[in-house]
Design a protein around this nucleic acid. Structure first.
Length: 405
RNA sequence: GCGUCGGUGGCGGAGUGGUCAAUCGCAACAGACUGUAAAUCUGUCGCCCAUUGGGCUACGCAGGUUCGAAUCCUGCCCGACGCACCA
């Protein structure tokens, strides 16, 4: 059997899978990876949001490939940058975080991303850094110097800025400093490669410019694809819409939310959010093309995702539970249980447990016929109904609950 | 600094003295259909109490005029644009 050049195959996968673009270009980075030099590669995280969903996992799966190639991996916690607010976000005004909050968020983050990227890898552990370490020490003079590397025209080329100006919306001067700060991180850490989502392109390229000016060397930039519905271009993971699949969600939730993903995104999600090999994924793609029911493939995707974060047993159980509840329309075996006082109004229980944002909204659920007693297979339409005996309810499309007295 | 226009519900955007909790679109929620997908149809979509119905809060903020204001007046805050400034 001929010796397989796994290293080259691994390099190629690292250079292409979930990769949107590489600056200056792919072949330059390929040469650097083949040179035998140990590269320093980093990804930045925002410590303001401890919520991590599978869309975020892409960066870490990409990073894992580089880690396995033997390069030095750094996760940079943007504790200083968090104070100013990235203009990539809608909200520009943010509350500075306390040290404790940053620490807490970081712990939450590690717990979640630790399932994807092996932080404590014995041979090649991940280094953690905080950008306040150097950013808080810059003097006003340093900052002026940094700013003098860019022209206003260059700043205005950023899509987001351009758009805001075209729409007559405010663009604050301090927003120009975000790319400067992020760019300076690359200088301070002396990195070879930065990895981030395509929304970070501008900021990462600012770092490329700064490394060139301050260090006279080249920093590569690799952007990863955002998990979007290929048919509509819309983000598949949205926290505000509740479609985000959080890494620390319980198996049943994770499974259900995966099943609610658009069919068009199945293959992309396999590529960006799982470790299945590309040939395996391609086999699935062919099954889809050959007309297999997308639902089957989606079941496999849901199973794989739950397996990644909760293990094989949980994945199998989640699948069985989902099929019982939604395909066979049986009462699920295990469901959250809520204990209430006998004779208490059902509507209070619904609001108190977050099934509706207000009592008025809960009332609508009753009148709309969204409260379904699964044991009697009847709708409870009366908002004043009280709980006198144990109940198993389906509330809306996706909530199941057992109420005991 | 001066001037013009503007600040309305998750977003976009109507409304310029009463019939406005506020047209409409998007998003969202629920029902039907289904594969908890998509598409489609229907209903809902500030909060609180209620069976019809009632109350409360809200249209940048604070006052005022009026029987009555998102709508008129005054002051303040914020933004876009234009002019001025460019030593």
């Amino acid at each position: 059997m001929p010796r397989l050049n796994t290293r080259d195959a691994a390099i190629e996968e690292a250079l292409t899978r979930s990769v949107a673009a590489i600056y200056p270009d792919r072949s330059a980075l390929r040469s650097a990876l083949r040179s035998g030099r140990k590269l320093t590669i980093y990804v930045g995280i925002d410590p303001t949001a401890p919520y991590v969903h599978i869309g975020h996992s892409t960066n870490y799966l990409v990073l894992e490939r580089f880690q396995k190639l033997g390069h030095r991996i750094v996760v940079l916690v943007g504790d200083f940058t968090a104070m100013i607010g990235d203009p990539s976000d809608k909200k520009s005004a943010r509350q500075p975080l306390t040290r404790d909050e940053v620490r807490h968020n970081l712990a939450t983050f590690k717990e979640q991303i630790g399932k994807v990227l092996d932080f404590k890898n014995a041979e090649n552990p991940v280094a953690f850094k905080f950008n306040s370490e150097w950013l808080s020490k810059l003097t006003f003079e340093d900052v002026i110097g940094l700013a003098s590397n860019f022209t206003v025209q260059q700043m205005l080329e950023r899509d987001m800025f351009e758009k805001r100006i075209a729409e007559g919306k405010p663009l604050f001067v301090h927003e120009f400093f975000y790319p400067l700060m992020q760019g300076y991180d690359s200088v301070a850490m002396d990195v070879d490669l930065e990895i981030g989502g395509t929304d970070q392109t501008f900021n990462m390229l600012a770092g490329r410019t700064l490394v060139e000016r301050y260090k006279q060397r080249e920093k590569f930039v690799l952007t990863t694809t955002l998990l979007v519905n290929p048919a509509t271009g819309e983000k598949m993971m949205s926290k505000s819409l509740g479609t985000g699949i959080g890494l620390n969600e319980p198996p049943a939730e994770m499974f259900g939310k995966t099943m609610a993903l658009p069919d068009e995104g199945i293959i992309q999600t396999f590529i960006d959010c799982t470790r299945l090999s590309l040939p395996e994924i391609d086999a699935k793609r062919r099954r889809l093309v050959d007309g297999e029911n997308p639902k089957t493939l989606k079941l496999e995707l849901a199973h794989e995702l739950v397996r990644m974060y909760h293990g094989a047993a949980a994945a199998t159980a989640a699948r069985a539970g989902w099929e019982a509840a939604f395909s066979e329309r049986r009462i699920p075996d295990s469901l959250p249980q809520i204990k209430v006082k006998k004779g208490s109004p059902l509507i209070d229980t619904i609001v108190a447990n977050g099934f509706a944002p207000s009592k008025t909204a809960a009332r609508r659920l009753f009148t709309d016929g969204a409260i379904h007693n699964l044991e009697t297979d009847k709708r409870i339409n009366d908002p004043t109904a009280t709980v006198n005996a144990p109940l198993v309810l389906k509330i809306g499309k996706k909530h199941f609950v057992r109420i005991v007295v």
